[in-house]
Design a protein around this nucleic acid. Sequence first.
DNA 1: TTGTCGGCCCGAGGCCGACAA
DNA 2: TTGTCGGCCTCGGGCCGACAA
Lengths: 389, 389
Amino acid sequence: MMKGPASAGPENPGVDGGDSRTINPELWYACAGPLVTLPSVGSLVVYFPQGHSEQVAASMKKDIDAHIPNYPNLPSKLICLLHGVTLHADAETDEVYAQMTLQPINTCDEKALLAYDLALKTNKPQTEFFCKTLTASDTSTHGGFSVPRRAAEKIFPPLDFSMQTPVQELQARDLHDSVWTFRHIYRGKPRRHLLTTGWSIFVSGKKLLAGDSVLFIRDEKQQLLLGIRRANRQPINMSSSVLSSDSMHIGILAAAAHAAANSSLFTVFYNPRASPSEFVVPLAKYNKAVYGNQVSLGMRFRMSFETEELGTRRYMGTITGISDLDPGRWKNSNWRNLQVGWDESAPGERRNRVSIWEIEPILTPFFICPQPFFRTKRSRQPGMPGASA
Amino acid sequence: MMKGPASAGPENPGVDGGDSRTINPELWYACAGPLVTLPSVGSLVVYFPQGHSEQVAASMKKDIDAHIPNYPNLPSKLICLLHGVTLHADAETDEVYAQMTLQPINTCDEKALLAYDLALKTNKPQTEFFCKTLTASDTSTHGGFSVPRRAAEKIFPPLDFSMQTPVQELQARDLHDSVWTFRHIYRGKPRRHLLTTGWSIFVSGKKLLAGDSVLFIRDEKQQLLLGIRRANRQPINMSSSVLSSDSMHIGILAAAAHAAANSSLFTVFYNPRASPSEFVVPLAKYNKAVYGNQVSLGMRFRMSFETEELGTRRYMGTITGISDLDPGRWKNSNWRNLQVGWDESAPGERRNRVSIWEIEPILTPFFICPQPFFRTKRSRQPGMPGASA
DNA sequence: TTGTCGGCCCGAGGCCGACAA
DNA sequence: TTGTCGGCCTCGGGCCGACAA
């Protein structure tokens, strides 16, 4: 029985180990989380140097320090044309990030920009997937991976239940197009789905720990894709050893300032999981939020947060202040200029400063239908399998 | 028999895992190689932005590209006061690097600077050490480490040869102050020194491969120190995912320019093994080389290179050209402005451009004494052990 | 439904001297 | 002097159902 070389470890059919080849967008978005969207190529966006700086500071686990020079000719936001977006994943950690190429454009024609209101087509691919947070047993060397029943039935190819212990070999592709092979078996009493051979190689290869999550997707070609999402451990101290933290911060500002002065291209990396810093915002979204809503102290709002298992949940809060986050350096910036309080005590730290485009203001409570009168059609089809939840 | 917790893996007595605590200078210099020296704190140095940029490019494995803006107000070299030097080692790779804090100083008083000629005290510690390039057997999981006889006798504590198979436990400290424990045994027929238990944990922990080298030092307190030097593999593509390559290069230039304009401090990382870019040069060394020697086309010179096993060897060459490396961006720079040819075909690629302070010009062959008449005193003490080499 | 454990088996890890370069 | 190998043993990796949450 000739088995392919994939039987031992991951197999990468790509030519080189880099991630420069095309990343599967479905998998990338799934790993990035339900709240992450990227602006469309060719659209106009608003770039916030301040937010960019914050992301770098978070990546370096270091505060933005005082003695970084001001760039007086660099405004707190730049309107840019988005020339390109490429998806990437860190070769070491599988952390997803996007590279965007921006071109600052002349903002003298303010009216035209206000009129710019490209429909916000969210072209996030929607696919079947499941996500499980790994238990101690899943990551221990003692055994394999316990597959939630629903997950196996929804995502994996169906087993041949005529066998007394149904088994099959699964192949799944990760963000780097490496193929991982697992033995999928349905056994035990009571019966359950397990991944055995191949699983521990995956766990050690990706350095997964209990608390991290894995993510299986079935794409439209019925292929399995495999992603990981690490628990919020402290960002490992990336004290670069190449560039000082100061040089990095200055580099960001100088690169943007230079591009703005010459209307030339510059490149940024957006790392959606490093920190909540969406520092490249679609202009349409920005305009709609800034000019569409009258925010005021005491105003109530909703805001979406990511849950475990890749869902979203909205929390409610109140605007408690409106002020520049850094009035010295970035005057009149809309970047996180709303101070907020939250109704529920924080499950996981909630931010106390947000930007206006992140929230949904509740204009008047009167218009909110507390419970839809006609419930969404739930006429249960008789004969459908269970799912009484 | 109570054994300490060190019997399994490395033990780090430091409080946190960072390398911010004091690195052992002897070990640092040994890992950096015989040609690396660092300027003294408080001395004057010359900083070359061009060379700094080269190092970053080498670290990123990416060419310095065109569209990086000129900084017209940033000269090709800055005279700086060296405020501080701290030694570091990369937490992942153990690669050594130094952080230097520089302050550009006013260069209007050129005369005074020329007079500046602090004696170049090379305060590199000299210690007993040995270095071995790992063989396939050393790194395979099948066995331990074969210790060269001389090395064991010179560096390790003496064994108790009254035992029929002498054994002892060795403890050695790496750059991060982690303690590694090895079983040192003298056995086999013929007898040889081996490191067995503990060795494979070290190899896998440091991700050592055949061709890499290990380095044992005995310091003046008779403590064992342990360093590694990786073979010249391709610098793993550090495509940062945090900052674009352009921003990094711009950041370097902008940080230096800002510091020069304000005579304020700035920080650089010098990574001696990433690339041959000694971009912070003692002013005394620079002055001596630039003003002390008349270089001309066809001039012969010597230059030192590092050998394996941490020795040095000098190769001879001829100056074939004198020109700016990048006349557009860095005019009148002395940075690698000498084009050279070498007498011997390159064992390992030799550079074809060097800076004048890297070479020893041979003024006239007449003054060079080919062999000292009185050899250095080698009156062999009778009764001294072997060492007839 | 699924997390953890005890049982059991097997193969990689690892210590040894033989042998030869 | 020392790099590589065959022999041999041991221990942890890993597959199994039991059992209980």
